[in-house]
Design a protein around this nucleic acid. Structure first.
Lengths: 219, 219
DNA sequence: CCAATAATAGCACGATCGTTCGTATTTTTT
DNA sequence: AAAAAATACGAACGATCGTGCTATTATTGG
């Protein structure tokens, strides 16, 4: 059988990687140590190592499970929203909620990984992190473009610029909440998102945003 | 003699720490290794180690020289501006220029350190980084308050909120410029700073901002 | 010029790092 | 039931980590 999904080891492997993702969000992907991870899992270093064959493979596999968790906890919940401005709003709220809920103990996994690898020597790990980050930015930009097509955001709105500003507020909240143990930075980010969306919105867009704040009673 | 300033070792110590700050901005303060640093300096590991006595002391001393470099390259150049909105503008431009000039090869030292330690166990290093970061935020907020007193920014402007949004844009630029090797993110941050300042400005403040973009001919 | 002191080097330590290898145990397939 | 494959373990490797101890070399003050 080519897939590992029915094998026993696949479950073990996944349990290892879930723990690895948690550790890496705090200690960094380089700070991930096979020995400490093995102790934490209650298994031998070589036994754990055999699942991956190299530390780099462990790091890449950790990124993959982190990405899946990210998709499940951030992107999927936002998919229920109507494409366009509502989806953009949902993506931002979903991200902030994901940080707030502690989906990763160290805050956003990819924010931490980006900060760790942004200046480092190129390699598969760095490339993968950059790719994941660009996907996230693209999904923001895409929703902005849909919103423009729907005349919910003004034609003058630059999708990449708006995505950059939203992402800046969300990233800053991610760092500051942990660094200063001050959850009020989440509200600052929400205020920032709200004001950016309101500022770019057309009258049509404003109605959409009002609907989101005061959801209509189920008919 | 109590001061080390006239001793030979003080110069050596400073050269070591300048290199350490450069390395740490790329590899992180934990990634700083005494052995590799010694090789890079062309001296023995124990000889280098003797200057500090422990890795933690090396990290703290590295933070200190990084802070001094930061003050010299970011804060001091901005001090020529008139207190208030002009100073706020100068602080943001100075920070972005400092990232752009590569004052630290890995981007902003303190942004990297904050991202590295925000989720980690408490300790003197983490505390010091948090303190340095809070000083920077406070200096932004202080300039905003002066600008409000001078009626350059509207009374409705929340200093901490505005500082948060400016910092978000600058931090995001710091990461993205390196991660995607795309200097255009610096312009995105400048655009973000400009629009935030214009939006909060009173007519008086707008005149100040215009003066900054089109400096008056020396009388 | 000599004694005191500061600065550096050499060496070794225990710990941990990623990695390899051989082997035993379990699970799956034939 | 036998064979094959997957899974895990224990031991050890060379390298590097931070950190001590001791000797040696520079520098400085009397």
């Amino acid at each position: 059988m080519s897939s590992r999904s029915s094998q026993v080891g696949a479950r073990t492997r996944d349990v290892i990687l879930q723990a690895a993702a948690d550790v890496a969000s705090v200690e960094g992907l380089e700070g991930l140590s096979i020995g400490r991870l093995a102790v934490q899992m209650g298994m031998s270093k070589s036994g754990l190592f055999a699942h991956f064959g190299s530390k780099e493979e462990l790091q890449l596999a950790t990124i993959e499970v982190a990405r899946k968790r990210y998709v499940r906890e951030v992107l999927v919940p936002a998919m229920t929203a109507e494409p366009g401005l509502a989806a953009l709003h949902a993506l931002c709220q979903s991200f902030l909620s994901y940080v707030e809920r502690g989906v990763f103990p160290g805050g956003c996994f990819f924010a931490a990984a980006m900060a760790e690898f942004d200046a480092k020597t190129e390699g598969p790990v760095r490339d993968r992190i950059a790719y994941c980050q660009s996907l996230w930015m693209t999904s923001l930009e895409h929703s902005i473009e849909i919103a423009k097509q729907k005349r919910q955001l003004r034609a003058s709105v630059d999708p990449r610029q708006l995505a950059f500003e939203l992402e800046g507020a969300m990233l800053a909240a991610n760092w500051y909440v942990h660094m200063f143990s001050d959850p009020s930075y989440m509200e600052r980010a929400r205020e920032s998102v709200r004001s950016h969306l309101v500022r770019g919105a057309t009258p049509t867009g404003l109605r959409v945003l009002q609907t989101l704040d005061h959801p209509p009673p189920p008919s």
